[in-house]
Amino acid sequence: MNQNPPAAFNSAKANESLAPFTPPDWWASPDTEKVKSSRAFDRASGKTIRGIASFMKETVFAQNHAVSGGLLQSLDPRMKLVTFFAMIVSVSFIKHPAHLLFVYVLTLALAAMSRIPIPFFVKRVWFFIPIFSAVIALPALILVPGKPIAHLFTLAGHDISITSQGLDSSLLFVLRVASSVSLAILLTLTTKWTQLLQSLRTIRVPSIFVLILGLTYRYIFHILDQVLETYEARLSRTISRQSAAKERGWIAGRAGHTLIHAMKTGDGVYEAMASRGFTGDPVFYSEHVSGIGDILFVFTAAAVIILIAVFGGFV
C-alpha cells in the first residue's frame, strides 16, 4: 500500500500496450484566444435534424393516445383495421362534397369519443393535406374546363381563370384526402403499432411484408437516435461558423455513413433471426379475441357506408 501515487504504475510491471498515459504539455495551458462562436450549424442543419427526429417520434412512436381508453381503443384492432380500410376505400368512391363532409365530421366525432383532443387531431390531419393534395388540387382549379369565376392572368393571348368546375373538383379532392387521412390517422392514433402489425398478420397480409414493416418500425427509432447522437457529437466540437459547402459535405457524409450502418444492422438482424430458426417464411402468433362491441362497430360502419351509397353518394 502506498501513500503516494505508486511508482510501479509507471514501471515495467504494467503491460506495454497499456503504458501509462502522460498528458501533453498543452493540456495545462488552455487556449484563451477569443473565438467568435456561431450556432449557424445549429440553426440550419440542427433544426432540420431535430425537427425530423421530433416529428417522427411524435407521429410514429407516440402511443399515449393508443392507451387512453376511449371508444376506438377498446375495439379489437383487427376489426378496426378492416373497418377503417373499408371506409377509406368507400371514401374514394364518394362524389358529393356534402357526403365527404359528413364522413369528415364523423371522424371528428370518433376522435372525440376516443379521447383525442380535437385541435391536436385536426392539426395532425391538415399537416398532411397540402403534401398529398396541393400538387393535384391547385392545377385543377385552372385546368378543369368550365365556367370562369375568377380571372387570374393572361398568357399568350389566353385568359387563365379559376373555373367553377375546377373549384368543385379541387374541393372534392381535398375533402377526399382529408377524410381518408383522418381515418388513417385515427386508426394509427388509437391503435398500438404492435397491435396494428398483429392485425395485418391476421387479415392475411403476407407475413414477410408484415415482418419488414415491423423491422422498419423497430429500427427507425434506433437509427434516428444514432443520427441525433452524431449531430450532437459534432455540435459539441463546433465553435466557429462552417461554410455552407462544408455543412452540405458533412451532411452527405453522415447520410452515407447512416446508410452503411443501417445495412450492417440489417445483416446483424438477419443473422439474429436465422440463429433462432428463421428461414425466410416467418411464423407469428396472434392473441386477439373479438367481442360483441367489435361486431357492433363493424355493423355500424357498414351501415354508414351503405347509407352513403344508397343516398347517391357513390359514382
Partner: peptide
C-alpha cells in the same frame, strides 16, 4: 442458441413477448 453482444440487433420484434416467442414459433 447464440446471445449476440449487441442486444439491439437481437431484439428485432416489436414487443418483448413477440421476441421471446419468435424462436419457438419458427422452430
Amino acid at each position: 442458441a447464440l446471445l449476440f453482444q449487441n442486444p439491439e440487433i437481437q431484439l428485432f420484434s416489436p414487443t418483448v413477448f413477440d421476441d421471446v416467442l419468435f424462436g419457438p414459433m419458427q422452430l
